[in-house]
Amino acid sequence: MTVIEASGLRKEFTVRVKSGWLRRRTRIVAAVDGIALSVERGEMVGYIGPNGAGKSTTLKMLTGVLYPSAGQVRVCGLEPVPQRTRLALRIGVVFGQRSQLWWDLPLRDSFALLRHVYAVPATEHAGRLAHCRRLLDLDAFLDVPVRQLSLGQRMRGELTAALLHGPEVLFLDEPTIGLDLVSKQAVRAFLAALGAAGDTTILLTTHDLADIERLCRRLVVIDQGRIVHDGSLDELHARYGSRRRLVVDLDEPLAAPLALPGVTVESTQANGRRITYALDGTTAAGDLVSRLVEAAALRDISVLEPDIEDVVARLYTRQAAP
């Protein structure tokens, strides 16, 4: 079942540029420029892109906070803006930098209040809350007013608040922003479990690519309002020529350099006793190792997997491999 369906989605903003005293020119900028996206029930999609790429704008159009300038969008079969309040009952949204909790009230009271706002049956609410309390370790600060919570505690509260009404789709806008390592891991583990259950569709934006590696099988990359990649992480690596690396430590330098197809020397250190090879996949790592063993006394080897940060940074700066 398709839960999110968008095509030709576009959002323009008028920007006023000051040009001299009183005179202002207006310029139209497309924050989102023709996006097509289709997400099936239970999918967990990472939505990434540099600042200003249009991530939040897309999210706002999907949740009914922004009206698209053009294109179609359906979430849970509803049109987000005209049917916003109906949609609200079926989605959960967490904005990493905005709170949906009641600032002056203890977390427990915010949750109780949300039960009424979303008209959730008491037993269902209690069940979900018990679940979140267990997985997110809420008990220690359930009675503390939200304003006194640490960022990590608040985020765990926000996640709970977004899930208490059993949303079919969960939108997360930078859910791990500003969190310390332990809190990040707690949030990720929780989301991973939620995703694994397969009932809730999750779309999350992030700048922390570890979130994506840990959580999302599918990755959508947006830049300048357009989708530049939609597929798995592996596909991204394949497409952008990310390379695995092999680092070898030798007892003494090689007599002559090795010549294998698709293998290049990236760097040599310690007078030639440590060599870093980059492999594009034409030659298997094993073949390279056996050639090395023949050529010199091998002391140590390590394989470095391609770095997602690298790939994405290259994507953002548009230095994609041919």
Binding site: R128, H131, H165, P167, E168, A197, D199, T200
Partner: peptide, 9 residues
């Protein structure tokens, strides 16, 4: 009984 399964629409 305490799963986070979506609310039956």
């Amino acid at each position: 009984d305490d799963s986070l399964a979506p609310h039956a629409t």
